[in-house]
Amino acid sequence: MSVMDKIASSKRESFITNSPWIIHYDAASCNGCDIEVLASLTPLFDVERFGVVNTGNPRHADIFLVTGSVNEQCKPVIEQIYNQMVEPKVVVACGICACSGGVFKQCYNTMGGIDQVIPVDVYVPGCAVRPQALIDGVVKAIGILRAKREAMLDGKPVPTPALRVGAELEVVRHSPDDEPAPTGADASDAAKETK
């Protein structure tokens, strides 16, 4: 590898993707997901061993963890935090309320999901979201962060998911027709019956 290649590859490697800083905001959630976000920073789960640091400043943050179904009053706050973050940035919707509105979807005051307000890159379901799932979501977010940074280095537009205003989250329901073919002992029994 030549010296120029080394410089080029070191430019590709970034402290942003090796040590992403997160910011957390509670957008009309029940608090359960928020304390799980904090719990994943504390000794049992300890995401700091992956270089993930919690920050209170949007300008320092790379990953935006949002919990809860949005209401009209916190909508401008979320937009402001999102706009204050510098590119590349990734939004993680933590918990089923942040994904689709969850149990509060039918309430008069909720808009139903963070993706009604800002583009969401990673959806982490759960009520309340488990720290393990959250860590998995953040790891996925780091991959997206890397892809966005690569795009910026190459001078391409940063891939940003579209807003889903008014769209329903896809719910995959398994009907009895979709059941997988029986296997093993069941399969031989089923074969006998058809004979």
């Binding site: 009309a28 179904s69 209401n71 916190c74 309430c107 008069y108 005051n109």
Partner: peptide
Amino acid sequence: IGFIHRGLESLVDK
């Protein structure tokens, strides 16, 4: 206050 008002008391209708 009011940033996380959801209005869940109204869900008793549903």
